[in-house]
Design a protein around this nucleic acid. Sequence first.
DNA 1: CTGATAATGAAAATCATTTTCATTTTGTAC
DNA 2: GTACAAAATGAAAATGATTTTCATTATCAG
Lengths: 155, 155
Amino acid sequence: MGRGYGRGQGRGHGWGRQLENSGIRPTAARELVFSVMESTPEHLSAEEVLSEVRKAEPGIGLTTVYRSLELLHRNGLVRKFDFGDGRAVFELNDTLSGKGPHQHLLCRRCGRVQDLTGCLGETLPGSMKECIDREHQFTAEEAVIRIYGLCSDCR
Amino acid sequence: MGRGYGRGQGRGHGWGRQLENSGIRPTAARELVFSVMESTPEHLSAEEVLSEVRKAEPGIGLTTVYRSLELLHRNGLVRKFDFGDGRAVFELNDTLSGKGPHQHLLCRRCGRVQDLTGCLGETLPGSMKECIDREHQFTAEEAVIRIYGLCSDCR
DNA sequence: CTGATAATGAAAATCATTTTCATTTTGTAC
DNA sequence: GTACAAAATGAAAATGATTTTCATTATCAG
Ligand SMILES: [Mn+2]
Ligand SMILES: [Mn+2]
Ligand SMILES: [Zn+2]
Ligand SMILES: [Zn+2]
């Protein structure tokens, strides 16, 4: 029956130019997933994205959410993590969110996940890249860092 | 039938004093799992540990291997990682292996995992702990770092 | 040795993610 | 617009690593 889900407020695609001429179709479902990611500062699981997306369009399936998140992830619009609880979580990439590069602090007691900016939040320092290259003949591109400890509530 | 699996060459438990008076029973299966971990420099999945363990004792079950690895991990004898391929891998803790603290380099192309010592291989520098404490009221205890890039074969 | 308790293994259950496949949308060419 | 081929979707089934269940067996203290 339906004629699709509509496309937000008009004026171009929500996910900007990133995928414009990539041959990837900016479908309504994908734009919804992207807009949920865009408007959420936290880390979301696929199920959580689904329930957000369904507020706007109840017909969307979990499979499509997985596929959309994977698509966005492969194209660098969304980061994907595994914080150790057996499911992936996603968040908007640091450039799009304006947060700047960041890493994560995980509380051992309550499980809270906080963003870490500054300190080790930035990308790998150039000196370390050189060291890794020199000592391991490895071209380091990106570091993913998780720091375990106790959050302010738990210590 | 059987009378247990025997216990190596006698003289005390293979896994040292770590679990001596902990109430945890040093069973033959656990000692076998531990000895496999002790004698393997690489990262092993549970299935891989199983097949090693079964060379000495074919009757051992995968369930017991999972339980033993988890036990060793909870007690700090074994590290546990997820390198992103949907299964956990284990390795002897850095003190027991004599390797010293290390992190991991993951090749984006071929998937090779290399140990990283030196550079960022060490534990979090004290200055960073202080920074994290100051700016996030978070007591950092341990950093887990994965660095993605291209290995010597692939670049 | 005996009994109480913990450990084991086979099979079943979980559960997040992926695959399959019939149906629906999209982008493009009339 | 209309027609078509290609891509996307969703429901249901399949996957696959890990966990749970439960009857049996091993371990330890007395
Ligand atoms: Mn984050
Ligand atoms: Mn290692
Ligand atoms: Zn906490
Ligand atoms: Zn490689």
